[in-house]
């Protein structure tokens, strides 16, 4: 299975929970056609940091939590299907995949 080293930026609360600094580097499997997907990133993230299970996507439905969005390369990818290919710049590690919390109250 081919993998690629990518970068993920988490919101502050999740960095504290996962006990990580700044951005996370992850080795993520590519799909059968050699593409990187949102689902593969989140699966790899949760495998390495189990405490994040349920914090980004719902435990049961696997839906993105409603106060979170995904961005990369200045694009909002929140509504993309989880198995859609992500930009090449994310797959190459040139650009990070951002998990962003809504600016709402707090």
């Amino acid at each position: 299975m081919m993998t690629t080293m990518i970068r993920v930026v988490l919101p502050a609360h999740l960095r504290t929970l996962a006990r990580v600094e700044s951005e996370v580097r992850l080795d993520v499997p590519l799909d059968a056609e050699g593409r990187l997907t949102q689902r593969a990133i989140l699966d790899a993230l949760e495998a390495r940091y189990p405490m994040l299970r349920g914090t980004i996507r719902d435990h049961v439905t696997q839906q993105r939590r409603s106060f979170l969005r995904f961005f990369a390369c200045a694009e909002d990818l929140s509504l993309e299907p989880p198995d859609a290919p992500l930009p090449d710049a994310v797959a190459s590690g040139a650009e990070p995949f951002f998990v962003v919390g809504a600016i709402a109250g707090g």
Binding site: A47, P50, M51, T55, F67, L68, A102, G105
Partner: peptide, 24 residues
């Protein structure tokens, strides 16, 4: 409201905490 539910456990009276669950 952003990140959902976490359960924390301490085995030393609150000095240190862990999230019990499946290890990495």
């Amino acid at each position: 409201g952003w990140f959902g539910q976490i359960i924390q456990r301490s085995d030393d009276g609150g000095k240190t905490w862990l999230q019990p669950g499946t290890p990495p």
